[in-house]
Structures are given as C-alpha cells and as structure tokens.
Amino acid sequence: MENIWSSEIDSILSVGRTLDSVGVRNWALEREAALAALEQLSAIKVAVLGGDVYAVNGANVESNYDNWYCNRDGGEADADFVERSIAKARSYITNYRANAGSVLFAIVPSVVLK
C-alpha cells in the first residue's frame, strides 16, 4: 500500500477513519485519538500545519468546514515550530465544542512529499 504521508506518520494517523469516501487522502480521528496522535507527532518532531473537522452523520462523514492552521514564523527554528504547532492543534481540538462522537479531526502534518 502506498503511503499518504510517510510510513511512520501513516501508522499514527491510520487509527482513525479513512476519508476516502469524501475524496480526501487522510484519516479523521476522534478527539482523544487526535490528541494522542499529536503527542506521537511531537515525539518524532513533526509539526502540524493544521487540520479539518468532519461531522459524523450515521455511517457517513462530511466536512463541516471548520478548520485551523499554523504557519511557520519567519526565522522560526524547527523545534520551536513543532512545539507551537502542536500546542495550537491541541488547543483547537481540546476546546472544540461538540458532543462526543459527533465530530472527527483530520490532522495535516508538515512533511516533504515525494
């Protein structure tokens, strides 16, 4: 199977629900799984560029058009960007108001695609 991000990142995010049905090559995770994924991405020093929120409607998922992003500041060191981007993603996901199981979070890691 072809990787979406990298084998290491795919193994972290693929615990979520595939978004193939909505034409997106990524996975969406429940809140606790998304927060755990952020910790794992932080441990391997991968920044998060942002993410999208998906509404769960029975067996279907669909974008609800909520999202967040984090741009690298000019001259910002790699380690600082990783830390700041993870903190921003963690804050967004933690503070997102929704009933348990009603939304999923798709995380967009900062990686060089080949």
Rank of each mutant, 00 (worst) to 15 (best):
I4N: 03
I4G: 03
W5C: 03
S6Y: 01
S7V: 13
S7G: 10
E8P: 00
E8T: 10
I9L: 07
D10P: 02
D10G: 09
D10N: 05
S11T: 08
S11C: 06
V15D: 13
G16I: 03
G16Q: 07
R17A: 04
T18M: 05
T18L: 08
D20S: 14
D20M: 06
S21G: 05
V22F: 08
G23M: 09
G23Y: 14
G23T: 09
N26P: 03
A34H: 02
A34T: 01
L35M: 07
A36R: 05
A36F: 02
A36N: 01
A37E: 02
A37C: 05
L38M: 07
E39C: 07
Q40E: 14
Q40I: 05
Q40P: 00
L41W: 01
K45S: 15
K45M: 09
V46C: 14
V46H: 06
A47I: 07
A47T: 11
V48M: 04
L49R: 07
D52E: 15
D52I: 00
D52W: 01
D52V: 00
Y54V: 01
A55H: 01
V56H: 08
A59S: 13
A59Q: 06
N60H: 13
E62N: 08
E62I: 08
S63E: 12
S63P: 05
Y65L: 13
D66H: 10
D66I: 04
W68K: 06
N71I: 10
G74C: 14
G74Y: 15
G74D: 15
G74K: 15
A77P: 00
D78G: 05
A79D: 14
D80I: 13
F81H: 13
F81L: 09
V82W: 04
V82G: 04
V82M: 10
V82E: 12
E83F: 03
R84C: 11
R84D: 14
S85M: 09
I86L: 06
I86G: 04
A87G: 07
K88F: 14
R90E: 14
R90H: 14
R90W: 03
S91K: 15
T94W: 02
A98F: 02
A98C: 11
A98N: 01
N99L: 09
A100T: 10
G101T: 02
V103A: 02
V103R: 00
V103W: 01
L104T: 00
I107F: 03
V108Q: 11
P109F: 00
P109L: 02
S110E: 14
S110I: 02
S110F: 06
L113W: 12
K114Y: 05
